[in-house]
Simulated scan of single mutants.
Amino acid sequence: MMEPIHKYFRLGTLSWMSFPTDRYDPVDAVRHIARDGDLDAVEITDYKDPEVKKQIRHILTQSHLSVAYGAQPVILGENLNPNSLDEPERRMAQERLLEAMEDAKSFGASGFSFMAGAWCEDGKEEALLQLKKTARALCSRGSSLGMAVELEVFDFDLDKKVLIGPAPLAARFAAEMRQVTNNFGLLADLSHFPTTYEDSAFAVRAMRPYLTHFHIGNAVVTPEKDAYGDKHPRFGYPHGANDVGELYDFFAVLRQEGFFNSRNPIMLSAEVTPRPGEEAEIVLANTKRVINRAWSVL
């Protein structure tokens, strides 16, 4: 396309994925992103150190970046289950997420994303009701904070194995949530489509009315190959399912389905992470090259 991608999307990246916290200082990570004029947005997460939080807030204040907060690392790192059939366990997850939401607001985040807990084949309907309790509590608090709440769609049987889950189930859940709140949406990730045995056309159209946020990335879904599962390797990684062609298809479906909105651009973040021995800056540059190529031939 002749028009820049920034006209229709707030192009961002997940700071903790682009610069893994076990290898990079989180303050330096956000500073690097804030200095990158190609990026319009950043997604941050939980930081334990008050001084780290203070420095990141200072950087974000200067940056003119749109900010979103991802609670997925909180859920995974603390083994929380927002749809646990054990009510005290579910409530504990809910309270921790509400605490994280207050933290998100302190960073100026406009959106708060989270994920479901473990897939539950036996008792799935009850688990969905439990997840709805948690989501409604988050949406209620989010409404008072002026914040959108977004549920990210993951795989259900390959790696993370969570309740939400395939696109049709995500759409069903979102439709029920929209009957009781107007600040709930779904976050769709291109790198998760191969892990749920779906493609862009099917997944985006199934969830169309409820999509408010996008991630893009790659996945290896060939068993016994390096980075198999939900590891988010760079585009072009050996045996990866997504590259320029798949990103082109994704953009084409988004255009067909009316997501190119210049008045209110949706956040579209890269979710790629360097594999061992790879450099974060190179992998992020790789991602931008793939985006530019796919966009240019759209």
Score class of each variant (00 low, 15 high):
84 S>K: 09
226 D>I: 14
129 L>V: 14
241 A>T: 05
290 V>H: 00
143 S>D: 15
257 E>N: 04
69 Y>W: 05
263 R>I: 03
52 V>I: 14
136 R>S: 07
21 T>N: 15
297 V>C: 06
266 I>Y: 05
116 A>N: 04
265 P>I: 11
240 G>C: 01
142 G>W: 00
53 K>F: 06
48 K>E: 15
86 D>N: 11
172 R>V: 14
293 R>K: 15
89 E>L: 09
237 Y>R: 01
177 M>P: 02
35 R>D: 14
50 P>V: 13
209 P>G: 11
148 A>S: 13
41 A>M: 11
227 A>K: 04
258 G>R: 06
205 R>K: 14
16 W>T: 09
215 H>V: 02
21 T>G: 13
162 V>S: 07
183 N>C: 06
6 H>M: 08
212 T>P: 04
143 S>K: 12
154 F>W: 06
44 I>G: 02
93 A>Y: 02
21 T>S: 13
6 H>N: 13
218 N>S: 11
177 M>Y: 02
104 A>Q: 02
184 F>S: 01
50 P>W: 13
119 W>L: 06
88 P>L: 07
154 F>V: 09
274 P>V: 12
286 N>Q: 03
3 E>R: 14
269 S>F: 02
23 R>H: 12
91 R>M: 10
21 T>K: 10
170 A>L: 03
216 I>G: 13
159 D>G: 04
136 R>T: 14
61 T>S: 13
286 N>M: 02
91 R>F: 07
240 G>P: 07
220 V>I: 07
14 L>R: 02
36 D>W: 09
224 E>M: 13
61 T>C: 05
248 Y>C: 08
188 A>C: 13
132 K>I: 10
112 F>Y: 07
26 P>N: 12
293 R>Q: 12
243 D>N: 11
137 A>R: 06
93 A>E: 04
283 V>Y: 10
110 S>F: 01
84 S>G: 10
111 G>K: 07
22 D>L: 11
278 E>F: 08
154 F>S: 02
2 M>H: 12
166 P>L: 14
4 P>N: 10
156 F>E: 12
198 E>W: 00
145 L>C: 00
220 V>R: 00
8 Y>N: 09
128 L>W: 09
265 P>A: 15
210 Y>G: 03
49 D>N: 07
77 G>P: 01
256 Q>S: 13
46 D>T: 02
229 G>D: 11
